[in-house]
Design a protein around this nucleic acid. Structure first.
Lengths: 194, 194
DNA sequence: TTATTTTTTGACCATGCGGCCAGAAAACAA
DNA sequence: TTGTTTTCTGGCCGCATGGTCAAAAAATAA
């Protein structure tokens, strides 16, 4: 992949993120993204297989960055409680500094569909995420930090609580994201405690 | 409103719920809803101001039924913990018997947009719901059943946990909804406990 | 410079949607 | 029965979208 190709793709992705965050998925047409980037619509089709590939590329890039951050923070933790708190707090901290990306991500998650009109992302796509969360809670149960409870229900609840935190912050920018994250960490710590 | 008018509206609403649940919002066009009901497309336009009114009417009707059920069950409760459990368990119980409605509701919540393309339902529409949930938790704090915590964060988390339970069940029909609801009730009871 | 390949343009197309409407049909009234 | 209102039909329209394409432009190679 040539240098100019890489640069164009990056430019288009950046433009798409900004358009998604500011006008929402429905109005983030290829035409709007192209106009915002100052290029012709056909360029997007030339560099991406289609709108879907562009959207998925955005998700992949943002997710990769988040994962890097969270994994790095998790390194130093050796207790389940510590991992739990770190997981929640580090994601919140990261998104706090990348609000535009969060908004774009939300738009894509809530709107991108496959050919049959079914959501591209959603509960059916979260299996990997659930298993990661379950891993932490299972670890806590094995060390005796946590009581016995249904791992899958806990993972679903945990995951949705974090999503809801961001969704609320997306709509209410003045909301204190870090404080919310600390409350959440307390909540799950207590809910799981023996 | 005439008898035939009322009957047609009910028929159209029922048809729309079934179509929404089975093929999703994107494919639930007026044409599809009309065909499924065995009537002409124009009838829908004749009896409803537009697709949006139809969708909002569906939400109102289903919500009303849920509220009736939950409020009736809440009558006998006098402790915050009891209200909490009843609230979660009765909603789950109701939706367990009305899966089609739940699916349709989910489709509308996740897809209906206003003229500017912004979601019709979402975090910005939940204020009333949040206040209702906060009311229960505040009551529990005042009676000394619950510890001190941020009411808004608790309401957001509680609400999203219930939504996520349904979303997961929507995708995984074999999932034990009642068991999930009991687990959730335990979680929130412990998370809020002193 | 000339030839070749890569990249960009902007018009064009097919598609699917919600909504509209003139006229037919049905229900109702006189 | 006849006239009037309500209800229904099915074709049509405007609109916006994502994607395509021939031709132009730019970059690169010979």
């Amino acid at each position: 992949m040539s240098f100019i190709e890489e640069a164009r793709r990056a430019q288009i992705i950046a433009s798409a993120i900004e358009v998604l965050a500011s006008v929402g998925f429905a109005k983030a047409s290829l035409a709007a993204i192209a106009k915002h980037a100052g290029i012709s619509k056909g360029v997007i089709s030339y560099h991406f297989a289609g709108k879907d590939e562009l959207m998925e590329e955005i998700v992949t890039q943002i997710y990769t960055k988040i994962a890097e951050r969270v994994i790095a923070r998790l390194e130093g933790q050796d207790t389940a409680v510590g991992m739990l708190r770190t997981y929640i707090l580090s994601v919140a901290e990261h998104m706090r500094d990348h609000r535009t990306q969060l908004l774009a991500l939300g738009e894509i998650f809530h709107n991108l569909r496959d050919a049959e009109g079914k959501p591209r992302y959603g509960a059916h796509t979260n299996e990997e995420l659930y298993q990661g969360i379950e891993h932490i809670y299972r670890f806590g149960q094995s060390t005796g930090e946590f009581r016995a409870f249904d791992l899958r229900v806990m993972a679903i609840t945990h995951s949705s609580a974090v999503d809801a935190m961001f969704a609320y912050w997306a709509v209410t920018p003045d909301h204190d994201l870090d404080a919310h994250a600390r409350e959440l960490a307390d909540f799950f710590e207590r809910a799981a405690a023996k």
